[in-house]
């Protein structure tokens, strides 16, 4: 297991729980280490311990974020979540026996909709992934995929019937991704769904799902159920991927045009020297020490 100080992901913020989930104390794992989250009754004092050591804490989107190393001063934003009429709901966490990067790559993938989310996010024969754009935004150090479109029979709870849905994907953090999709309730606005992968080990995660929706008709429970249904369909795929860690060597798997975002994501992890949850490309060992 890779626990060296030089591993860049050790110095990132990672989600460990939703504020609401913690009933006093919650024990969980972060990158192979046991951490304890304590929340006072009125949600005022939130502390995360690693042994006796108090770890840094940020609360954002209703989630508690911490770090085992020296994290940057701030964490990425999802500005839409602050809009007054948004419904912000967490749907998770879901434990998955996969690496955080495999989960992120799956989240960025549209080609699997007809096969894994059959009759909901996609249906045969509408399987085509039209060309889309991916850019690496240097200033923000995040990946942005735009002009993504996919035909969906039932894109969200609020959608009636099939339609071509527009997507925008952001990867603002090596283990977090945010998607924006045309809202079924208001065509001019975008629903937001995010995945924050908490790496409990190199090959297991707690997937925290965050929804920020334009939806006036469904209850939180119904929205959660829908998202859990979808993610529950991805789970067995992720758990049947081998190797579980994401291979960064271009020769390890076979990408196609539809995988552009995954190609850029893998390169980006390589260039950032992320060694956790990945199999580095040969000759590009980064800081990883795998035992």
């Amino acid at each position: 297991m890779n626990r060296t100080e030089s591993e860049p992901s050790r110095h990132l913020w990672h989600p460990v729980a939703t504020v609401a989930e913690v009933n006093g104390t919650l024990n969980t794992m972060l990158m192979g280490d046991a951490v304890t989250v304590r929340v006072a009754g009125d949600h005022s004092g939130i502390v995360v311990f690693h042994g006796d050591r108090k770890l840094p804490v940020i609360v954002r989107f209703g989630f508690i974020w911490t770090s085992l190393g020296s994290p940057p001063s701030d964490l990425f934003e999802i500005p839409e979540a602050a809009e007054a009429d948004r419904r912000n709901v967490s749907a998770g966490p879901v434990g998955v026996a996969t690496s955080a990067p495999r989960a992120i790559e799956n989240f960025l993938d549209m080609a699997h909709f007809p096969f894994v989310h059959t009759d909901i996010l996609g249906a045969e024969p509408h399987t085509e992934v039209k060309d889309y754009d991916v850019e690496l935004k240097e200033t923000e150090n995040e990946i942005l995929a735009t002009r993504c479109r996919f035909f969906q029979p039932m894109a969200a709870l609020s959608a009636a019937g099939g339609m071509e849905v527009d997507y925008v994907y952001r990867v603002p953090h090596p283990f977090c991704a945010v998607l924006y999709k045309s809202s079924g309730a208001d065509a001019r606005r975008m629903d937001v769904i995010a995945i924050f992968a908490q790496p409990t080990s190199e090959e297991s995660i707690r997937a925290h799902l965050f929804l920020s929706m334009i939806d006036t008709t469904h209850t939180d429970s119904e929205m959660r159920r829908f998202q859990q249904l979808i993610f529950g369909q991805d789970k067995p795929i992720l758990e049947n991927q081998r190797p579980r860690r994401l291979p960064l060597d271009p020769r390890s798997e076979t990408p196609i045009r539809a995988d552009l975002s995954s190609i850029v994501y893998r390169r980006w992890l390589s260039s950032r020297n992320i060694g956790y949850g990945v199999i580095p490309a040969a000759g590009q060992s980064g800081s990883a020490v795998h035992g």
Partner: peptide, 27 residues
């Protein structure tokens, strides 16, 4: 080999279509 060349999903969870094997992930 029990692995789809595309993204590494086990082919043992795939679909035996008779004369073709279809991967469960991206078909």
């Amino acid at each position: 080999e029990n692995r789809c060349l595309h993204r590494g999903v086990r082919l043992s969870i795939g679909v035996n279509e008779g004369l073709e094997l279809k991967c469960q992930y991206h078909g």
